[in-house]
């Protein structure tokens, strides 16, 4: 089981499981965090895997990120790397 934490003053993350993937609804609260999420997005959009993590930007400014099940951990690790998350642990 993977657990992660984030700074709720900067970002809000809701996660829901689908059949073959996981959807993260991400509400960004600061410009600094928006830059980090954009870096995370650029990382996944520039690699050669087109469906590992798909980012959708919505009108109200929130992001919807659909992550393939086999990329779940990789996505979280990179979210941590770009400091969108504060901690990540296995329980």
């Amino acid at each position: 089981m993977i657990r992660y934490t984030y700074d709720t003053n900067q970002i809000e993350i809701r996660e829901s499981k689908n059949e073959g993937d996981v959807t993260f609804n991400v509400i960004v609260k600061t410009d600094d965090m928006r830059d980090r999420v954009k870096q995370l997005r650029a990382f996944f959009e520039e690699n050669n895997d087109y469906t590992d993590a798909m980012f959708y930007s919505h009108q109200d400014g929130h992001y919807e990120v659909i992550v393939r099940n086999n990329n779940y951990l990789i996505f979280l690790l990179h979210a941590f790397r770009f400091r969108c998350l504060e901690s990540i642990s296995w329980t």
């Binding site: 650029a42 959708y56 930007s57 919505h58 009108q59 109200d60 400014g61």
Partner: peptide, 13 residues
């Protein structure tokens, strides 16, 4: 409807 809510302007980097 969800697709209609996408913000295409945010794609311009």
């Amino acid at each position: 409807a969800k697709l209609m809510d996408l913000n295409e302007n945010d794609e311009i980097t």
